[in-house]
Design a protein around this nucleic acid. Structure first.
Lengths: 202, 202, 202, 202
DNA sequence: AATGAATGAGCCTTCATTCAT
DNA sequence: GATGAATGAAGGCTCATTCAT
């Protein structure tokens, strides 16, 4: 962190405005399709002026996803370290996930949308979400060990399935347009939990 | 929309080769990042020559996803029209889905990857998958009505969840690399079905 | 040699025209100052069109200096391999040098002008002239050994001096403007030779 | 030309530091490649701040070369006005030249490096070195008249040759790296003098 | 059918320069 | 005196597209 001269500059309000704008533009058009001019316009400046704050376009991508991802990772870590049952941990983890979407809508959707191509970006970006994957898988594994989750499910695959349920929201979810995140959260949790639990209460 | 001069041309072998190549290149690089030169090279011709077969790059996108999607739609329609129970219909539909992935891997993954931005493309592309969505939703609704599926789940949301489980594969699935589609299919079906069924047999 | 697809293309007339234009423009404005647009205009095309022939600006620089330098190197090699006396070899080498200037004026002057910064360019460019340096030095050394040239002069330094005499022409020489290359050649040779010979006939 | 508001400012220490930094940066990267930011960084200020001292980048170039050139011109003038023999004058002039390099290494190398393009810069810069050229030529001419230098050599051309010997150092000379300026001076003087003298003592 | 060649618009990035504070 | 911030013009490069042959 803070390797370049611009770190100081980055820590100001304007830079945050730029990153916010970038998040929205990336979200709307996709990273590659988004133009620096688009972003600059959204902030009310010229594209060249952005370079006072960044070194290259990719910097913006990193800045957009860095904080949300780190926050979610941190929250997840706390959840995992409790003595809660795996089932409860999973519930909390899923709620954390949706909460993340609530707070960092564009940002996380941008993240999800570049996932497939993240290898193209610097390693920094590529590994940002790895820990989340890992911790989810850990919860699932623990649940299986403790007989709370079905033994016939592969932890890795099931983690993918769960991420699928939630992350695919990127494709259809739009705020103020159909369902609230709250509704979605409730429904998806019920679905996922019943899907993996070994003893289903009916 | 109407048949144009190129319709004839499109029906030949060469054009199919081009579309196949396009599918692979789109899948690997993403639609925007893929270059007509990439595609042309993959077929062994020059980029300019492609225009004998297409009018614009987007045509290729359409051609790539058109057939797979239509086929899947058709299959799904047949499944829906049977007298099978909703549960069985859902199982078949999901198997059909994975089978589609098996046969049209790149193509469908391309489709999924552009879903979010499909509005940008001509209406033709935008509506291609709508029927699939609709029929899935129908199965779910029917299952709820017939008390096979949980009443507390919203059909539309649950359809999204299911699509999420499967379509998110685009992000992590790679053939000959971990799980077979068969394994995935079995696991995901078990997960999804237990997740939505009203009476779970344990 | 011939690593990329464009090799074939490069071997045509148009590419040569471009390289010629580049040589002139580089000569007039300097490599960095020269714009691709300048060069394109000189050939009567648009700057973007140049990329049909090149991969990057630097390619042009390389193409400009490659042949002249190779030719001069080759000629020099022949001169060195004879049984001529060092004095005669030096004379011939100097004449070869001026002849090179005659044939490849812009090209060689471009070369000389980037010498200081050649490290910035790919290794290919950086080492192009090394052999010439080396062979000149060899002639001087041989002349000293055979007592034709002064023992009190350091071969390396004197080679630099001689290059200085000739290559500095880049700064002041302009065709059809003062002296002919022939006149310059005669004068400089007399000057250089008397400067290094051990026995001067007066 | 006239003294402007900034003249006062220019006469202070800070401005000198800036010019010194500019000299080094210009020398290392070339004038065009050197960034005002590079220079500002070298002095420990921001690029915008430079404009308190300068009107435009070119000003720095002028300031860099002005003093060294004027000093050398002045010294040369003194040498010329003596009653020394042309031979001695030439020796002194050459020593003055190398001494200049010693004291104003970067500065003079910058000067030499922009010579070809000096027409692009304001006339002020363009004519700065003219007097030096002229006085050198005068010494040579005088030497020929007095039969100390060879009659068969053209004064103008020979002056170019001599400048070549010394000024080309810009291309290969690097302090603390091979030869000392002292060594170079001795060798080059011997070479040049024997090269032009009419009676060579062996 | 396909090629070779060129177009032109657009994008990222750089940088000298300005200016209010 | 100096900073921070922004400007705007320009440059290298990419690429879908066109078109004569």
């Amino acid at each position: 962190m803070g390797k370049n001269v611009k770190t100081t500059k980055k820590s100001n309000e304007k830079y945050m405005k730029i990153v916010d704008a970038a998040a929205k533009v990336f979200r709307e058009k996709g990273y590659k399709e988004a133009t620096l001019e688009d972003i600059a316009n959204a902030v009310g400046m010229l594209k060249g002026s952005l370079y006072y704050y960044i070194d290259k376009k990719e910097d913006l991508l990193y800045s957009v996803v860095e904080r949300p991802l780190n926050e979610m990772t941190e929250n997840l870590r706390k959840i995992i370290q409790t003595n809660d049952s795996p089932t409860l941990k999973l519930e909390k983890a899923l709620i954390n996930h949706i909460n993340g979407f609530e707070r960092y809508q564009s940002e996380l959707f941008v993240w999800i949308s570049i996932e497939w191509f993240k290898a193209e970006f610097g390693g920094r970006i590529a590994t940002l979400g790895d820990e989340i994957d890992h911790m989810f898988r850990q919860i699932i594994s623990e649940g299986i060990e403790k007989n709370e989750f079905r033994r016939d499910l592969d932890p890795k695959l099931i983690t993918f399935a769960i991420f699928g349920v939630f992350n695919y929201m990127q494709r259809w979810y739009s705020p103020n347009h159909g369902y609230t995140l709250q509704e979605i959260s409730v429904q998806f949790n019920k679905f996922v939990l019943q899907g993996i639990m070994s003893k289903v209460l009916l």
